[in-house]
C-alpha cells in the first residue's frame, strides 16, 4: 500500500517535471492578442525607424522607446511623434503582458520586459540611440 502511494506520487512528480521541461522549450508568442500587437508595431516601425536613425527617438533600458531629442523634428511633427512614441509604448506593454499571459504566467511580465529590453538594444541598428546605465549612447 505504502509502496503504491509512493509510486503514484513519484510518477506524478516526474510527469510534472517532464511536462514542464517540454513547456519550457519554447514560449508561446502566437496568440491572437500578441499577433495583433505585433502587426500594429510592425506597421508603426515604418514611421519610427526614421526617428531612430535621426536620433530623435531612442530605446530605453526599460524596454520602451522615448523621445531623445525633439529638436531634430520639425515643430509641426512633434505632436505626431509624441503620439507615435506613446502608442508604441502602450503596445510594448501589451506585448510583454500578452506573452506572459499566453504562457499562463502573468507574473512573468517583468522578466519578459527585462529580456526584451536587452534584445531590442542588442538588435538596434548602428546609428540608433540606446540607453545604457541611464545615459544615451549611439550604437
Amino acid at each position: 500500500m505504502t509502496r503504491y502511494i509512493a509510486g503514484v506520487f513519484l510518477a506524478f512528480c516526474f510527469m510534472a517535471a517532464f511536462s514542464h521541461a517540454q513547456a519550457a522549450a519554447d514560449l508561446n508568442v502566437n496568440t491572437p492578442a500578441v499577433a495583433a500587437v505585433k502587426a500594429a508595431m510592425q506597421a508603426r516601425h515604418a514611421q519610427l525607424s526614421a526617428y531612430y536613425q535621426s536620433g530623435a527617438v531612442g530605446l530605453t533600458v526599460e524596454g520602451f522607446v522615448a523621445v531623445k531629442d525633439a529638436s531634430l523634428v520639425p515643430l509641426s511633427q512633434r505632436g505626431a511623434l509624441a503620439g507615435l512614441v506613446n502608442d508604441e509604448n502602450t503596445d510594448r506593454t501589451h506585448l510583454y503582458q500578452g506573452i506572459a499571459a499566453a504562457n499562463g504566467h502573468p507574473e512573468w511580465e517583468g522578466e519578459i520586459q527585462r529580456i526584451f529590453a536587452l534584445r531590442w538594444i542588442d538588435k538596434a541598428q548602428s546609428g540608433w540611440f540606446v540607453q545604457r546605465e541611464g545615459q544615451w549612447s549611439r550604437k
Binding site: A16, A17, H20, A24, A25, D26, L27, V29, V34, K38, M41, Q42, H45, L95, I99, H105, W108, E111, I112, I115, F116, R119, W120, K123
Partner: peptide, 22 residues
C-alpha cells in the same frame, strides 16, 4: 517547476523583434 525560462524568453524575444523590425 515554476521558474522563469530565461533562455526560451530570449529566443521568443528575438523572434518577435525580428518580425516587428523585419
Amino acid at each position: 517547476n515554476i521558474y522563469f525560462p530565461a533562455a526560451a524568453a530570449e529566443k521568443a524575444a528575438d523572434k518577435v523583434i525580428d518580425e516587428i523590425w523585419q
